[in-house]
């Protein structure tokens, strides 16, 4: 393993900036998110716990031009935007968000490749940074993750005092380290120090859910209308928990036209919105409890059934940022042990 002195982080990022568009955590714009590094500011090392806007926004843009169109003499010409091949490097991504990115990769690779997402993904290096001060809303350890574990990233950094220990997780990461100045070999002491730091961080995550129990109970709860009505009662149907969820990927497609020129865009959409599933005559999820049920089941039942993984990494944003403190862990823990006696008509 390698290490780098904390005071050399600027030097590290400056080298990488020559090759990549470097993204770092920033709260300059009023809400913490990954933004393009200005070449100097590393103050995030002091305040950064996690971003409000999840790093999925680097791959699934909340507004993206899919193609442009121009009408000339009644005929349309379609123009694809230049493929997103600019190499980017996301510095400081937390393990929960890195894992979340791997999880939604599955959707965008599945059956039909989504070039917009995948181009960005393939051209991005993820430099993880262990999360040593998790929020009280975090529950990553219940989902097989550790707040400072090296997963789903190219390099993993762990704060060991004066230095960051660097784990080279992928070949891409290894190659990057090899051509980076200021990185030195770590000692065995450094490695054991990092181990201690990781253990301490792990123990700091106190919010727990029992995923085995949930996977058992949740499918049986599906038709329990009374349960879902009760847990959905205080939801206000805004888009915060889904838009800011690192594993929520649902989107909408919209056109915009200005004087014969226009473009088709993709933007984020949310299953919390009543009109999301609206058809001319019917709306399968008009009632709020159906939408709340959809959200929870998508993450904990449907996604595991399709891709063999729970689409939640316990990042806690949906709890932390919810205007009414709707808490998915409470809902999951309160799912009745007994199957409902078929309250919903088929």
């Amino acid at each position: 393993m390698k290490k780098v002195k904390k005071q050399d982080i600027t030097r590290l990022l400056s080298q990488w900036q020559k090759e990549f568009t470097v993204f770092v955590p920033s709260r300059e714009n009023g809400a913490a998110e990954m933004t393009v590094w200005d070449g100097q500011d590393v103050s995030f090392l002091d305040w950064y716990r996690n971003t409000v806007i999840p790093p999925k926004a680097n791959f699934l843009l909340n507004m993206e031009i899919m193609f442009g169109f121009r009408k000339e003499d009644g005929s349309y010409n379609l123009e694809l935007p230049a493929a997103a091949t600019q190499k980017q490097l996301v510095f400081g991504i937390r393990p929960c968000d890195a894992r979340a990115t791997s999880i939604i990769d599955m959707v965008f690779k599945d059956a039909y490749e989504d070039k917009y997402y995948l181009n960005r993904r393939e051209n991005t290096l993820l430099i993880g940074m262990g999360c040593l001060n998790p929020y009280d809303s975090c529950f990553c350890t219940s989902l097989g993750l550790g707040p400072a574990e090296a997963t789903d990233v190219d390099l993993m950094l762990t704060d060991i005092g004066d230095d960051f220990l660097i784990e080279e997780v992928t070949d891409k990461g290894k190659e990057l380290v090899a051509r980076t100045e200021g990185v030195v070999e770590a000692t065995r002491d450094d490695e054991s120090r990092a181990g201690e730091v990781k253990d301490t961080a792990y123990k700091k995550v106190t919010r727990k859910i029992d995923t085995r129990e949930i996977e058992k109970r949740l499918p049986a709860s599906f038709d329990n209308e009374e349960f879902w009505e009760k847990v959905a009662a205080k939801c206000v149907s805004c888009g915060i928990c889904t838009f800011l969820c690192p594993t929520c990927y649902c989107f909408d497609i919209n056109d915009e036209m200005l004087k014969g020129d226009g473009a088709r865009y993709r933007n984020w959409d949310s299953c919390s919105f009543p009109l999301y599933t609206k058809m001319p005559a019917e709306n399968p999820r008009e009632e709020k409890w159906r939408r709340v049920r959809q959200k929870v089941h998508h993450k904990y039942t449907f996604y595991p059934s399709l891709f063999d993984v729970i689409a939640c990494t316990g990042c806690g944003r949906c709890i932390r940022l919810c205007p009414v403190n709707w808490d998915i862990t409470q809902t999951l823990e309160s799912v009745p042990a007994e199957a409902a006696t078929g309250t919903e008509k088929k």
Binding site: G30, C238, I240, N267, F273, P323
Partner: peptide, 14 residues
């Protein structure tokens, strides 16, 4: 300010 609005409509919903 409005450049960073993500249209989650929380303001309207609450």
């Amino acid at each position: 300010e409005f450049s960073r609005c993500i249209r989650c409509y929380a303001c309207r919903q609450v």
